[in-house]
Structure formats: C-alpha cells, structure tokens
Nucleic acid binder design. Structure first.
Lengths: 148, 148
DNA sequence: AACAATTAGATTGTGCACAATTGAATTTAG
DNA sequence: CTAAATTCAATTGTGCACAATCTAATTGTT
C-alpha cells in the first residue's frame, strides 16, 4: 500500500507540471510570431494592463523573483519593448515602462488568447471552471507556503 | 473588448504555470531531505515502478526529451542512484537501471506523498477529483499538439 | 544624529526545458 | 543487398527558475 503511494499516475503534482509544459508548447508557435517567450509574454501582459510597474510589483503578480526577472527584463529592453530606470523617489526601485514599440505589440498579441482557446477545443464555460479550480489551488498552495 | 482578452487574471495558462511552480516549492523541503530535485524525483518514481527503463521510455512517461534527460540522468548516476548502459540488442538504446542505493531510497521517499497531501490541506476525494481534471486536460493538450 | 534592521534589485551558481543539430545504429525500400 | 529513411541518444545554445549572497538605499530605534 505504501508502494502504491509513489506511483507516478497517482501524482497530482505531475499532472499539473506536465500540463503546464504542454500548454506552454501550445503557445510557442503563436508567441514566436510576436518574438516573445512565454515568461516574457506574462510580463508584457502586466505592462499592457498597467503601462509601467516596478520589478517588485511584477514579481508579486507573476510569483517570480529578481533573479528571474532582472535578466528577462534586460532582454525585453534589448528587444526595445521596455525601458528600465531607477525611481527618483526611491533609488532602490527600478521602474519598468512600455516603450512605444512595446505598447504597439499589444495589437499583434490580441489574437493570441482566442487562437489558443480554439486550439484547446475547450468550451468557454469549461475554460472558466478549470481556471477557477487552478486559481483556487494556486492561492491555497501559495498561502500554505507563506504560513508554514 | 479585445483589451480584456489580454488581462493576466483571465489567463488559464498563467494559473496553471504558477500553480505548478508553487507545488514544486512545497516539495522542495521534502525532496532536499532525500537529495533529489523535483524532475529527478519524477524519474525515480518511474524507476521505482519499473526497476529499469530506456531514456526514450522515461521521456514518454514524463514528456521530456533527451536534451533534458541526458544531463539529469548523468547527475543521478553521479549520485550513485542509477546506472546507464547501452543495450546489447540495440546499440542506439540506453537503459537506465536502479542501483541498490537507488532502490533503497524508495523507503525514505515513501512518506513524501502523504506529507504533501497533509501540507496541501486537500481532502482525499478533492485531491482525486482535481487529479482527474488536470489529467484529462493534460491528455487533451498533448493530443492536440500531436495532431496539429 | 547614529546605527541597526529592512527593503529592492542585482549577481552568482546550479539545474532544468527545449529547439536544433549531430552521429551512430537500425529499419525500410527499391 | 544497398541506399535512403528513421530512430535513439547526445550535444549545443538560449532562456528560464530559484536559492543564496551581495550592495546600496531607506526606514526605524534609540
């Protein structure tokens, strides 16, 4: 019985881990067209919503730290999509802002969610239900880890 | 309207991506005790089930390719948990086998799934329901990508 | 004012992921 | 039987993730 506990197909964690990677692979061809990686796309999503954001804020929205974000943001800067500048008010803070080119890319990215929904063959209501399930699990896991 | 489609909080993909990483972080302290990373743990799960497996077979079970597996398996070999050997029958194939030490590690790993279930605060029936949901989504995504 | 504690971001180092290419072994077709 | 196609693993190169450490700026305490 304790043997059975270790079977791969019983692992919820594996299903989610593999699922996440499969979804990223579905995105790739669409993101290639706009020249972004998947994590870069997530950063751009936040910036398209908020125009500019601190590294700290991006980290809180995406659950990423500066070790991941700093090099990623430097690459987005190299691509000409964002600018990075120390805040005048607080020299510790780095503010990331959309360049004109970065803002313009939004138009080309707009079709991506719809195309992916089509690719996935999910009904909108099932999509929403799954999103709810994952978000509730996500918040639960995150809260769990904070209060450990 | 097309603006709303690009909001981060509407993204199923992000919920899954973040969820997967949070779960891995819950595992880390438990896996540290047995000296494995999360992907190494997944490889060991397959080997504890099957005693030995080809690189190709491991890749099929875990949805990973040789570019990921080869260096990972070399590290497991360095740790003394597995051995790697070309097949006599077909020199292209590399067979990965548990060493005695690798097989013995199973005893120490047995408690991990239960500890994680406790950490997660999920009821067993909810755990099973979620696993079903995510597996069905996983297979759907994978199949989608194969028949694109 | 002075100094300890905290905070924000950068840096370093390890280990995945994965696309693309390579090379050797095997299978298939002509 | 042999040449082309396929298969399996390794290699190369890029880009995350993340722990740990570091530096500089700010805040809190006395």
């Amino acid at each position: 019985m304790s043997d059975d506990q270790l079977r791969l197909d019983q692992m919820l964690c594996f299903a989610i881990y593999a699922c996440s990677r499969e979804i990223t692979k579905l995105y790739r061809p669409l993101l290639d067209e706009v020249g972004l990686t998947y994590p870069q796309y997530l950063v751009m999503l936040v910036l398209w919503e908020e125009r500019s954001a601190t590294v700290k804020h991006l980290g809180e929205r995406l659950y990423l730290d500066s070790g991941t974000l700093t090099p990623l943001l430097k690459r987005l800067e190299q691509s000409g999509l964002v600018s990075r500048a120390r805040s005048r008010d607080d020299e510790r803070v780095v503010v990331i802002s959309l360049t004109e080119q970065g803002a313009a890319l939004k138009q080309r990215a707009n079709k991506i969610p719809h195309e992916l929904l089509c690719k996935s063959n999910l009904q909108p209501e099932e999509f929403l239900r799954l999103k709810g399930e994952f978000e509730s699990l996500l918040h639960r896991m995150h809260h769990m880890r904070q209060t450990d």
